[in-house]
């Protein structure tokens, strides 16, 4: 069983034999997406979960903003989720997870930009209750795009980085519903493409491998969200 390593104040930067180190947090969707992408690209990496309420000092040295995720590759340090993704893609060109066509690539970037600007605030707001209309408006972007593409995944016949980046946010919804007993159902009829996509993603090997490695599931996630709402985030819940 893989072990989740947490780093907090007082901890020094771990020594690792691996060339690639990702600093994130078990439940953080941004670093989750990068973990999925790195697995899918077949990269060998160490993941460190940062106790965000009590951050180790070295984090600030790696990223002056003190934010996660941060990627260390040998002596190279890169931060900001999308920039890390592009760095990985440029550096490890095997198994590309983006289109090689400039226009498709640009469309994907625009779509992700829209999603990442609009979806996270709505999902975070679920900690305070549900605004079904706001959420449905955002999920409609996902539905419309999948319908327009007419393919099983955003990436076509296989998931690409967009699939993983969107998934890592949508996966939070069931846990939030559970944690705060929200009644929200994504309509099966008008969101049929989204539902079909969720069904496929849920079976993705890398997603399931990551669930195992981080010991994260909807139940554990919901306990984490509750602890956040109670003011004392339990980053090691369920371990």
């Amino acid at each position: 069983m893989a072990k989740v390593i947490q780093l907090q104040k007082g901890d020094s930067k771990p020594s690792s034999t691996k060339d690639l180190k990702l600093y994130g947090m078990r439940f953080d969707p941004y670093s989750m997406a990068l973990r999925l992408i790195m697995r899918r690209k077949g990269l060998d990496f160490d993941f460190y979960s940062i106790k965000m309420s009590d951050r180790p000092d070295f984090l600030q040295q790696l990223n002056p903003n003190g934010q996660i995720p941060v990627l260390e590759h040998g002596d190279t340090v890169v931060y900001e989720t999308i920039i890390i993704y592009e760095y990985l893609e440029d550096t490890f060109t095997d198994k590309p997870l983006r289109s090689s066509d400039p226009a498709t690539r640009a469309m994907d970037r625009i779509f992700l930009h829209e999603i990442y600007t609009n979806l996270p605030p709505v999902i975070r707001a679920m900690m305070e209750g549900i605004e079904a209309k706001r959420l449905l408006d955002q999920l409609l972007r996902v539905e419309n795009r999948l319908q327009k593409q007419g393919s099983p995944y955003f990436g076509g016949n296989e998931p690409n980085y967009i699939d993983f980046m969107v998934w890592s946010w949508l996966e939070l919804i069931p846990a939030l519903k559970r944690a705060f007993t929200l009644t929200f159902e994504l309509p099966r009829g008008s969101f049929s493409n989204t539902w079909a996509w969720i069904g496929r993603m849920d079976k993705e090997p890398v997603i399931n491998a990551e669930r195992k490695a981080s010991r994260v599931n909807a139940e554990i996630r919901s306990r984490f969200f509750k602890s956040v709402a109670d003011g004392s985030p339990d980053y090691m819940v369920g371990l």
């Binding site: 590759h73 190279t76 890169v78 920039i83 890390i84 592009e86 760095y87 440029d90 550096t91 400039p102 226009a103 690539r105 640009a106 970037r109 625009i110 930009h113």
Partner: peptide, 24 residues
């Protein structure tokens, strides 16, 4: 996104580093 698109579309004159780290 337009910067990236133009770099992909018109790669002859480079306006972004080709090294992944410098680009990041």
């Amino acid at each position: 996104v337009i910067y990236d698109y133009l770099e992909d579309k018109f790669p002859q004159v480079k306006t972004q580093p080709t090294d992944p780290y410098l680009k990041a």
